[in-house]
Design a protein around this nucleic acid. Structure first.
Ligand SMILES: [Zn+2]
Ligand SMILES: [Zn+2]
Ligand SMILES: [Zn+2]
Ligand SMILES: [Zn+2]
Lengths: 159, 159
DNA sequence: AAACTTTAGGTTATAATATAACAATATTGT
DNA sequence: ACAATATTGTTATATTATAACCTAAAGTTT
């Protein structure tokens, strides 16, 4: 179940699954997966590398979509709100979510060499939040964790 | 020892301690805490709210320092490299480190109302990293965690 | 269907954050 | 004093993101 993007896998099924979940979530919430939104989601899922908003603009232009920043940011904001993608703050980039629909913190490892990002089990983040809430009297509403380093593939190539 | 920035405290001692540690770390590493670097560090420590690079520019200008973006970014990069400050990616802002000199992940809670940030014990992040390294074969080199929510003070004011 | 309301997209401009490149100056070591 | 290195000054530009206002499309009510 917990996939590993650094292993060979049928990536078509990653994309299919993401699109199916997106359609379902849109239906459930009475929102519309318009062409530009769907296409942006597909582009984010083109591979497992976080993609910047401005990388998407020329691709949308190629396909005849309007391509001004607000267009792509609106689509990305829509997908973020629905939990279909996450934002990797340290990269100013966006990546598909592995299990949209289940509220959870953004928790990723990103390889500094190849750029591929792996979503991690975020349950440990829950403990961190609970502990902080208890000790400091704070109320945690959102959280994100980003790890950086070398993936198994790039470790091998380094040696 | 683990301070709580949401409680009343002698903030002068926060700043003094930060400066003393900075001087020590610079000496140990043979680097220079030049006037602009020290002043930027002091400004970052003015309160416990993460500060943006462009907020610092006019303040430096007031004091007669050169105030072009490269000046402040160089100072911030210097302080980051020495571990004297952390960057809060989700805010594009910088905050003083509570225990510089001891290598550790950046781990903060930020109140969405008052903006004050509390550095958290990052040891739990270590477990997350170890687990991910074991399960995925990755090598984690850096990590950051950012929590958002309401601090105790702002919770009270909300009710 | 017509009129109305709501949602989404188009367009232009600009804000906010960050870095490149190169020249000038200050500091350190010999 | 001299050379080597580190730091700062300066100008320009790259990158990321949003504001504001208008138009079009889709859903809703009558
Ligand atoms: Zn895949
Ligand atoms: Zn996710
Ligand atoms: Zn303080
Ligand atoms: Zn710290």
């Amino acid at each position: 179940m917990t996939q590993n993007v650094y292993k060979h896998h049928d990536h078509h099924s990653c994309v299919d699954s993401a699109l199916n979940k997106a359609r379902r979530l849109c239906e459930e919430s009475g929102q519309r997966l318009t062409p530009v939104r769907q296409r942006v989601l597909e582009m984010v899922w083109a591979n497992h590398k976080p993609v910047g908003a401005y990388d998407l603009l020329p691709k949308l232009a190629e396909e005849g979509f309007n391509s001004a920043p607000p267009t792509v940011y609106r689509a990305l904001d829509f997908l973020l709100d629905l939990g279909l993608i996450h934002r990797i703050s340290s990269l100013n980039a966006f990546i598909g979510c592995n299990h949209p629909g289940e509220a959870h913190p953004s928790c990723f490892f990103v390889c500094r060499e190849c750029g591929r990002a792996q979503e991690l089990d975020s349950r440990l983040m829950g403990s961190l939040a609970s502990k902080a809430e208890e000790e400091l009297g704070i109320k945690v509403e959102q959280q994100m964790t980003e790890l950086m380093g070398l993936c198994p593939i790039c470790q091998k190539e380094a040696s």
